[in-house]
Design a protein around this nucleic acid. Structure first.
Lengths: 238, 238
DNA sequence: TCAGGATAAAAGGTAGCACCTTTGACCCCC
DNA sequence: GGGGGTCAAAGGTGCTACCTTTTATCCTGA
């Protein structure tokens, strides 16, 4: 990916360094240092720094320079921050956070979708649920998974709440990761197809409570897969 | 509030104009226009634009200028975006979105908190629940509400999931707004105190399922207060 | 020991230039 | 008359130079 704009190189490199922990919290950079490291002008260094500042990865302090901020202040919903974390050694922690987020929001998203889904969205759900059935029974894992992803994406979109919609990509990231963990339920099982169908039917029916509880059913094995205890340290730390 | 940095004036003015709908989607600004409007140098205009671009409120295109982006691409979890929306005519839509977000995440946050809360956090919950009882019975609405807010803040923090933690301020915004809507349950009622106490005890006990279901109880009247149907147009549009 | 001033580091801000990309108008040729 | 090439303008991108402002630190002197 060729950086069409120069400052994106700076942002990507410094951003992933900070998020990946290679730049310790409290470290002070200077514009001059950035200029030298990336061989760019002051303008580019400043604009890149402004972008990192908007993500709350750094603050700019007179006399001190550009200071790396602790994880608590990061914009953890920024797509780039999520991407950098997924590409770093804290990938497992990021995936666990995303999965927990998914568990939290998908049930009520389904509830809202039952009240608000458009006809097009209901059609998309029917199609996705149908494909899960067909490809699941045919053993086409890749197509099955694609339909699964389309299903969950559509439910969130059909919630017609812009905050849930904004969480589509993060949630899809968590959904997609599942099979790589070797969970038993990663492969198509009839129960999963039934539950997705139940969610779809409840949404088509406008039955919010039923949609919510069926979605809870889908998530139940994801819930059991989450170790509630934190492995080491703290999820918020990395 | 005097803007200590010049570009924040630009960001605030343009950001709230865009979010408030006073700058239509697709409108093209130019750096020169921004310079003239705010009487700032090109550097300041550019840095402000970079910040707005990081929030996905605008994109910068050669020859076209700085183009206002549609709401779907906004960083809706950015504090400034939320603030601007709350200060605009779309405040009710933003509050509804926030309330729905709250309904989604608080139950599972309580579940996680039961597994992860530190002793300090449990103490804070005990204290908050106790104050709700005392000030509720004494009719001290302001103190009651402050304790309520502290309670919900602490539950989210105790989830030790950085994404839930990052949602504290938005959720508190929704919690704080409740009384202004004149809901019957805005004033201290024994049932609310009991439920908060139940959440606190379940978390102290490490009983995730109980914490989650007690939190669902707290949210039940908030749920019934949400009109599932969208009033006019679409929540994602404003 | 501590107050106060001098020093200097580094961001904030201004100005102006060269360059690149895109777009749209214009013109020529078929 | 229409298609394609050419050219100029618009406007962001990037660079340099220079001045201002803030503030951490150090040094001096009471």
């Amino acid at each position: 990916m060729v950086a069409t704009v120069l400052h994106s190189r700076v942002v990507n490199a410094l951003g992933s360094d900070i998020v990946g922990g290679r730049l310790a919290v409290g470290t002070a950079l200077t514009l001059e240092g950035i200029q030298a490291r990336f061989d760019v002008s002051r303008t580019v260094a400043r604009e890149g720094m402004r972008i990192l500042e908007a993500m709350h990865l750094v603050t700019s302090e007179r006399r001190n320079g550009i200071v790396v901020q602790p994880a608590e202040s990061w914009n953890v919903f920024d797509r780039r921050v999520i991407r950098w974390r997924l590409d770093s050694e804290t990938r497992p922690a990021q995936l666990r956070s995303l999965t927990e987020l998914r568990i939290g929001i998908e049930p009520f998203a389904a509830h809202l979708a039952a009240a608000r889904a458009t006809e097009d969205e209901k059609d998309a759900l029917r199609q996705a649920a149908g494909e899960m059935r067909v490809f699941g029974e045919a053993g086409r894992l890749d197509r099955y998974l694609a339909a699964d992803i389309a299903f969950h994406r559509t439910v969130l979109r059909a919630s017609h709440n812009e905050m849930y919609v904004a969480l589509i990509e993060p949630v899809i990231e968590a959904v997609s990761e599942r099979p790589l963990h070797g969970h038993s339920h990663a492969y198509p099982v009839p129960a999963a197809m039934d539950l997705h169908e139940a969610v779809m039917l409840a949404i088509a029916d406008g039955d919010g409570a039923a949609a919510e509880s069926a979605m809870l059913g889908i998530l139940s094995d994801v819930r059991s897969g989450i170790g509630a205890a934190l492995p080491d340290g703290d999820a918020t730390a990395g």
